[in-house]
């Protein structure tokens, strides 16, 4: 069975940082190890051969990044979360601003962005919202812009949509072409996609709502702490932050600058600058 020790994993993350300026040094070790093993298996490389390839072949790094980052997601994941968004969080934001801004941080292949757009459209406010969706990986951003997904994923997505109690029929949002579900591009009219690195990148805008669900689970605690500071700075006062249902902020330095709005769905509100 393929294996890799921690020393080699550290050599890989150090090399990628020094040579390519991507920082995986503070990623959670268990999942980072699985991702690297997966690449070794896929490309039939030993740890030494992988290090050599990353050193000698700069173009390989994009492929490496694409496989390393976790891009498994579904539309309307946790339907109860989306119901709370529709019934409580978005209306609360709209009490103060008719127009507002949302950041999807670590948007991956875009299913969550698309879910948001469908929900906003059904609420009749898609025009009033500016959405910025970012990811580290340029290849996955292209997928997100295309909003074209394998038709076999639609069964699960539709089930989630029904549990979310959407007001339309899920099938109205896409057309079937060559085994793919091709979603209506108009849904993305107010979305801009851009490459952004949560670890090394700067603050670039202020938002009323940030969604970053199941992204920080791949970071160790010290990196989670740093990223939360960036989210804090990127939120307007009384803006909202949503993380994954089994993530927690309580051990972060900035935890006391937020209050819990919904503990089941892990929605927080910034209350202190």
């Amino acid at each position: 069975m393929l294996d890799i020790d921690i020393a080699d994993l550290k050599r890989i993350s150090e090399l990628i940082f020094q040579k390519y300026n991507y920082d995986f040094r503070n990623y959670a070790m268990s999942s980072f190890k699985r991702r690297v093993l997966r690449i070794m298996e896929l490309k039939k490389l030993t740890a030494e051969a992988l290090l050599k390839k990353l050193t000698d072949t700069p173009t390989f790094v994009n492929e490496f990044l694409d496989e390393l980052t976790v891009n498994v997601t579904e539309m309307f994941r946790d339907p109860s979360f989306w119901r709370i968004m529709r019934e409580e969080i978005i209306p609360a934001i709209m009490l103060n601003h008719k127009q507002f801004k949302i950041w999807h941080a670590g948007c991956s292949s875009g299913e969550e962005v698309l879910s948001m757009c469908i929900m906003l459209k059904e609420m009749g406010i898609l025009h009033d919202v500016t959405i910025i969706a970012t990811d580290l990986d340029v290849n996955i951003l292209e997928k997100a812009k295309n909003i074209t997904y394998p038709i076999k994923n639609m069964e699960l997505n539709e089930k989630n949509y029904i549990r979310f109690q959407g007001t339309s029929s899920f099938k109205n949002y896409y057309k079937e072409e060559n085994g793919n579900a091709v979603f209506d591009k108009n849904l993305l009219m107010n979305v801009s996609f851009r490459r952004h690195d949560l670890v090394l990148g700067d603050i670039f805008n202020k938002f009323d709502l940030i969604l970053c669900r199941n992204v920080m689970i791949y970071f160790n605690q010290s990196l989670q702490n740093e990223v939360l500071k960036k989210f804090h700075e990127s939120l307007f006062k009384y803006g909202y932050l949503a993380i994954g249902s089994k993530e927690s902020l309580i051990w972060c330095d900035y935890a006391n600058r937020f209050i819990v709005v919904n503990n089941e769905e892990k929605i927080y509100k910034k209350i202190k600058d």
Binding site: A28, S30, S31, R35, I217, G244
Partner: peptide, 10 residues
């Protein structure tokens, strides 16, 4: 390592 859990959606 460090005696805690890590969750993932891989």
């Amino acid at each position: 390592l460090g005696n805690h859990f890590a969750l993932s959606t891989e």
